[in-house]
Nucleic acid binder design. Structure first.
Length: 481
RNA sequence: CGGGGCGUAGCGCAGUCUGGUUAGCGCACCUGCUUUGGGAGCAGGGGGUCGAAGGUUCGAAUCCUUUCGCCCCGACCA
């Protein structure tokens, strides 16, 4: 297949490739305001599908949606010491409104722990009021010095879950449960293999006792934090006075959690699955799962034979794959080559092409976006075969990404081996690590790599590669976005 | 916030050093004809206050000053 002429190769310039893919697929565009982006219809449709899967899972685990305001009194932020320190530098502040200077400046929310904490303190009096399990879908703003479409923009869309519990155990369980929900959807729906684990001290959410994250490897071997779940202890409950009377009649502070995934996931999909021809979307999140492309120079033949066939297949497939998931390409003003490329760059998982030759044989020529593989699907088998092929694509994308991660994950036991990996092509490095903030900083200065997480499903321990201390936990290091 | 690069048609660029026709090329767009199974061909056409402001000059896309914006690379972050 010819190289796409509007997309630079990954080999040549990875970050330009990323931007080219997004542009070619019409996912996003730059906004007139620095650091902000426009999410175009195809990008937004992808976000809606991502949202749909997460939202279902939140509701299945007992959460409900609500909405809290965009503007937060500046003083709220200041109630939690670490929180203000972490977020103040990147807050946008509203000082004027209605033509007058405000008595108290308002910040545009960078996250909502503070307002939500304020409200929870009103809503909670008794242990019977707990747990509170609320999620909100909204935009947030964190002023960024350097932005990148989907990965880091000043304004972004996300979901933030905020829960309050009567006991520490329950809150910890919630934190880990939601991490598991994230992992499940990322792997099974977005086809992103992720490492779920605990963050290091230096990477912790400002104000949290503990932060957990799902870390994914992009196709340039760098890590991307795809979602986080925080155990906030009683820090915010103390700051906002979320107190309640327990069943013994004693006053206690609630235990809270928060967890979020954002439009960054779109960036993760792009950088995990796409290739030099453009976007590749895993079928389960693809707004358009299959496109039918009737091809003929003969208008009469198109109208009387090809299009009716195409519509028939579309209707049948929409029943099995979901409403509106099959599109018919009717861009007949374009030449066939242009039409193929347009659909390739859009990342549509499967194309069903049909011209005179296929028509005579009663088949579609199916072409997989991920592998380029072609094969015939007889008309009468469409409903049965297409979903199966889409499942195969979904599966193959996941395992291909998993295999890539495995191939680029290295176990090291000393600093020398550690440096070698990052001096070469980079990747994930597994090493026993017992250092703190200082050691992390030194490692970052020397190699650019940071602790991505201490993976959950690993209870090995060994000698720290950096400090030589025994009994160290296994950490995964990488350069990251 | 530091380093680098760039602002000329929707996109990509040339022209700027060395000021001087009516500011040009490719792609895209519009019209017509011929085409049509993996990025078509021919012909015609539309589209620009050369990022902005000030200055030098008979004359500025080009020189000077100021300014705004964007992209890339680093430090900080979902």
């Amino acid at each position: 297949m010819d190289m796409a002429r509007n997309i630079v190769s990954r080999e040549k310039d990875y970050s330009q490739w990323y931007l080219d893919v997004i542009k070619a697929a019409e996912l996003a565009d730059y906004a007139p305001v620095r650091g902000c982006m426009i999410i175009r219809p195809d990008g937004y449709a992808l976000w809606e599908f991502i949202q749909k899967h997460f939202d279902e899972a939140f509701k299945d685990t007992g959460h409900v949606n609500a909405y809290f305001p965009l503007l937060i009194p500046m003083s709220f932020l200041e109630k939690e010491a670490e929180h203000v320190e972490g977020f103040a530098p990147e807050c946008a502040v509203v000082t004027h409104a209605g033509g007058e200077e405000l008595e108290e400046p308002l910040i545009v929310r960078p996250t909502s722990e503070t307002v939500i904490g304020h409200m929870y303190s009103k809503w909670v009096q008794s242990w019977r009021d707990l747990p509170i399990l609320i999620n909100q879908w909204c935009n947030v703003m964190r002023w960024e010095k350097r932005s990148r479409l989907f990965l880091r923009t000043s304004e972004f869309l996300w979901q933030e879950g905020h829960t309050a519990h009567a006991t520490r155990e329950e809150a910890v369980e919630e934190t880990l449960k939601m991490l598991g929900v994230y992992r499940d959807i990322m792997e099974n729906v977005l086809a992103l293999p992720v490492l779920a684990g605990e963050k290091s001290e230096g990477e912790r959410f400002p104000g949290a006792d503990n932060t957990y994250a799902c870390e994914a490897m992009m196709s340039d071997r760098k890590a991307l934090q795809a979602g986080t779940s925080h155990f906030l202890g009683q820090n915010f409950a103390r700051a906002f006075d979320i107190s309640f009377q327990n069943s013994d009649g004693e006053l206690d502070f609630a235990w809270t959690t928060s967890w979020g995934v954002s439009t960054r996931l779109i960036g993760a999909i792009v950088m995990t699955h796409s290739d030099d021809d453009g976007l590749v979307i895993p079928p389960r999140v693809a707004p358009v799962k299959t496109v039918i492309i009737p091809i003929s120079p003969d208008e009469t033949f198109l109208e009387s034979d090809l299009l009716p066939r195409a519509r028939e297949a579309q209707e049948k497939l929409n029943v099995v794959l979901g409403k509106r998931s099959v599109k018919i390409d009717t861009a007949f003003h374009m030449r066939p080559g242009d039409r193929f490329f347009a659909n390739i760059q859009k990342g549509i998982p499967l194309r069903l092409e049909m011209g005179e030759k296929e028509f005579e044989r009663g088949v579609f020529q199916a072409v997989r976006r991920d592998s380029g593989e072609r094969f015939d699907i007889p008309w009468e088998e469409v409903e049965e075969r297409v979903p199966r092929v889409l499942d195969e694509i979904q599966n193959d994308l996941y395992f291909k990404a998993l295999e890539f991660r495995k191939q680029n994950t290295f176990r090291v036991s000393d600093l020398e081996g550690f440096k070698e990996v990052f001096a070469a092509r980079g990747g994930f490095v597994e090493a026993f690590f017992a250092g703190g903030r200082e050691e992390e900083k030194l490692i970052k200065e020397e190699t650019g790599a940071t602790v991505r997480c201490f993976p959950m499903d690993n209870d090995e321990s060994g000698t720290c590669f950096f400090t030589g201390k025994p009994g160290a936990r296994l950490a995964v290091f990488a350069r990251s976005y």
